[in-house]
Nucleic acid binder design. Sequence first.
RNA 1: GCCGGUGUAGCUCAGUAGGUAGAGCACUCGGCUGUUAACCGAGCGGUCGCAGGUUCGAGCCCUGCCGCCGGCGCCA
Length: 586
Amino acid sequence: MRRRDPCAGCWLGRADEPCARGRGTLEPHVRTARLGGLHQGQGRRGRPGVPALPGRARCTGRPDHPGGRDPGGGVAHRHGRRHLGAPALGRCRPHERPHGGRHQGQSLDVQAHEDRHARRGACGTPAGEAQGGRGMMGASEKIGLDPVYAGPVDETRTAIADILAGKKTGKDVVVRGWIHRTRSKGKLAFLVVRDATGTIQCTLKQGVVPDDQFTAAAAALMESSIALTGEVKEDPRAPGGFEIGAKEVQVVHAAEVFPIKEHQSTELLMDLRHLWVRSQEQRRIQRIKHHMLRAVRDWFHANGFTEVTPSVITTNAAEGGSDVFKFDYFGQEAYLSQTAQMYLEALIFAHEKVYSLTPSFRAEKSRTLRHLTEFNHLEAEMAWMGSEDNMKVQESLITYTAHTVARTCHEELTVLGRDPEDLLAIKAPFERLPYNDAVTFLNDNGFPDFKWGEDFGAPHERKLVEGRTQPVFITNFPKKIKAFYMKEDPDDARVVLCNDCLAPEGYGEIVGASEREVDIDEIVRKLKEEGATLANYEWYLDLRRYGSVRHSGFGLGLERLLLWFTKQEHVRDMTPFPRTTNRAYP
RNA sequence: GCCGGUGUAGCUCAGUAGGUAGAGCACUCGGCUGUUAACCGAGCGGUCGCAGGUUCGAGCCCUGCCGCCGGCGCCA
């Protein structure tokens, strides 16, 4: 209950100075001062959402891939087409859009997507999209929806972000939101109101606002919902530089005493998670996650992947004996899925390149900053691809996602303590460090006793990424410490063709990947070695009976990626309702 | 699972050598027409995690249990 660590629960802490107890970056309204100029996605560099990413302007080859073209990349297969290898990735031809049906040989069109989003100022400031305002209508037109679906038909209110951007100065507006804070000075009251786009101070003067409304509003407690009309004024005394001089105020719902105040313990915030999600910190993280998800889907779509939806109820206990959540499924034993991998392997025979985003469940009683019992697992599987191609996919995906998030969520990242430049600097290719070399490195750098064949522990992992600013692939681990489905390295029978991806700055493993064993006899042999019940794997073995092909895939922990991107401390804050070993409520 | 830390008011914490419980915030009432986590005055507020033990006397010392936090292992 007591926290020695920083005050993560500072609801009202200040922005500019650390909370007396620690980091205190979660203040709400003080932020508005900073938001003022940035809220429209203008970023620091002035132009809306188009940061000066080196190599961004040109559109010739992948700027982050030296040479733009990798002769060995792209997997030439039988029909002479190339999958997702470097050449395809390297191209950036905005006009060559992926379109229905075909998925092969498509160029990486994410640049265009990205720029389009950036231009819209979509970013963390959903002035348009979240508010159902004009921004959304713009998007709707593209998608082909009737603009009416962008918001209520009688929508007249204004997004606070628009006010803070100076678009409404001198005009009468209607604002709806929640009371973030009240400061009453007798006949003058200040209400700080929050909507999804930002917070703004509203001044209520007795005599201007009808008496009964004034009384009700001044008495309304934090988080009461409220609607008010008034004139927007630019005023240096107001946080954020703008305020609304209220003319009419309606308390939509007078809240009870809000249980979250300033300086809260982790435990309380977890108990009150359903209310804590309203905090500026949580809002920012969820916004970044939203853009991350969008980026990821854009990338996969642009590269010819089909998104599929495997079940999370399974009878495969799989995944190297780690603990599973078991339950009774109408009389038979079933499990919550730990990975969709095997199902994706089945689906590549229909789609060749597939990905899925499903929850995965791990019943290990892990007590760390990086573990959830339920996490969002982004998994991909590619037919015809080997381990090197697999890594190319991973690094391209991660790089693109990092860049997109950096450019669309500039304000959120900055407030959370992540310099967007850190993410813009992420560059493929990532270093490939074979396990053998990693062992040598460790032996020479403080771990003389580390033996070949052991798995890396946290201290080893930290040493391996020490000083790095880029992710690194550790490849070709010993067979013994990896799963049965991984393919043996033809050049070294002791290791398998696999890779982990370690994030920089000690954020740890974000991806686990491998080329899969395709030889049925080999798989059967390994399963027997592990003492597995073969009957449980019959359907999986079938995949090696009917047109087996070389294939590879990976799994990425979405919350871990987000943790790295946002530079936060704990994965549990990367998801609105985290499930940890001792919490399934709320 | 192992190791360490911690549990006092609604919340965040203090509690000095063992001597009978404090502050700030929140809330209520009063004051204030430019506040910025507003401020000023008053009020409300505790079975000191639970159960034993030592002692004339325990929030404080001892034992056990429980909760929470962190580290390790395991992984994404």
